[in-house]
Amino acid sequence: MKAIHADTKELLFSLTEASSVAFSQPLQLAEYVVLFVPAGKGVFHADFTTFTFSGPVLLFATPFQLLRLETKEEVPFSLLRFHGDFYCIEHHRAEVACNGLLFNNIYQQPFVQLSSAEARDFSQLIAQLQAEFKQPEPSGIVLKAYLQLLLAKSSAIKLKTLAAGQDGPPADEQMEQFRQLLDQHYLTLHKPADYAELLAVSPNHFTKKCNRYFGKSPSRLIQDRLVLEAKKQLHLTRKSVKEIAHALRFDDEFYFSRFFKKHTGVSPQTFRRRTGISIVADLSMQ
């Protein structure tokens, strides 16, 4: 069940029933991804981040992340894929605050744990989406409404678990300070030792705490923060690749392109072509 872009032939929105076998080998998808796993457990790999999951759970991924599911036995799930041209999460930020929460967040694990009651609600939503797709002419408006409801409910549950301190380790003031420092200085400070010095701790101690708290090394977080900003500018602006490279303080666009491809598997041009340029880019120019 899928909708195809009339002009570019890119996938716009799809809903399929699949299992962990389909994700047993690393793969990249050009769309935003939501996996609804009613039951079962395993390990979810998204780029270089890994974490264990146990259903019922929702798993999230952004375009061109390298994804893999590792399970001891076959785990079925519903797979939602949507293109930014079908539903722009940045444009709908006011209605559904999922950008930076469910997607495009380098600090948090991309999942939402569900209660039995919440899982039943999502099962019903999936069933309603399936029913609409089976119509002779599925309504894009109805499909978007169901997708928006699914994302809104997911965001609400995620925020609730974060507020209750149930999602991840207890808050660490020093690591939260590192998060703020990284968001402020990622363009100019590219070495873990730079941040260790700002935090007045040894580099070794800093690395250990960061790995425990975020599940990533400081080097990985620094790289991820730069890649995240590059993706934002490619998707949310009409700046040229050369202009983006300059804005991100790269010496030239060729070095930037090599850096981007090394960390995403695709060139900046391919990423922009496959994910599209958001409506937000044109609205910001008005």
Rank of each mutant, 00 (worst) to 15 (best):
K2I: 11
D7Q: 13
D7W: 11
T8L: 10
E10F: 12
S14D: 13
T16A: 11
T16Y: 10
E17Y: 14
S20W: 03
A22H: 14
S24Q: 09
P26E: 02
L27C: 06
L29V: 14
G40I: 04
G40H: 00
V43Y: 00
T49W: 04
A61K: 04
F64G: 00
Q65N: 09
R68S: 04
R68N: 06
K72S: 10
E74N: 10
E74P: 07
V75H: 03
P76L: 05
L79K: 12
L80D: 02
R81S: 01
F82D: 03
H83A: 08
H83N: 12
G84C: 07
D85G: 11
F86I: 11
I89P: 03
I89E: 11
H91F: 13
A94Q: 14
V96T: 14
C98K: 09
G100S: 06
L102S: 04
I106P: 08
Y107W: 15
Q109C: 04
Q113W: 06
S116H: 09
A119I: 06
A119D: 07
R120P: 07
D121Q: 13
F122A: 12
F122I: 04
F122R: 11
Q130E: 15
K134L: 12
Q135W: 11
E137S: 13
P138D: 08
G140R: 15
G140L: 15
L150W: 13
A152S: 15
S155W: 11
A156L: 13
A156K: 15
I157R: 15
K160E: 15
D167S: 09
D167Y: 00
P169Y: 08
Q174Y: 03
Q177R: 11
F178I: 10
R179G: 02
R179C: 07
L182V: 11
H185N: 12
H185A: 00
T188Q: 08
T188K: 03
L189I: 04
A193S: 13
E197D: 07
L199P: 01
A200E: 05
V201C: 05
S202H: 05
T207L: 01
K209G: 03
C210R: 00
Y213L: 02
Y213M: 03
S217G: 08
P218H: 02
S219R: 07
I222T: 01
I222N: 01
L228I: 05
L228S: 12
E229G: 06
H235W: 05
K239R: 14
E243M: 06
H246D: 13
D251F: 05
D252L: 02
Y255C: 06
S257E: 01
S257L: 05
F259T: 01
F259C: 04
F260G: 00
K261E: 12
K262S: 09
T264N: 08
V266Q: 07
S267L: 04
S267R: 07
F271I: 01
R274I: 05
G276F: 09
I279L: 14
D282A: 09
L283W: 14
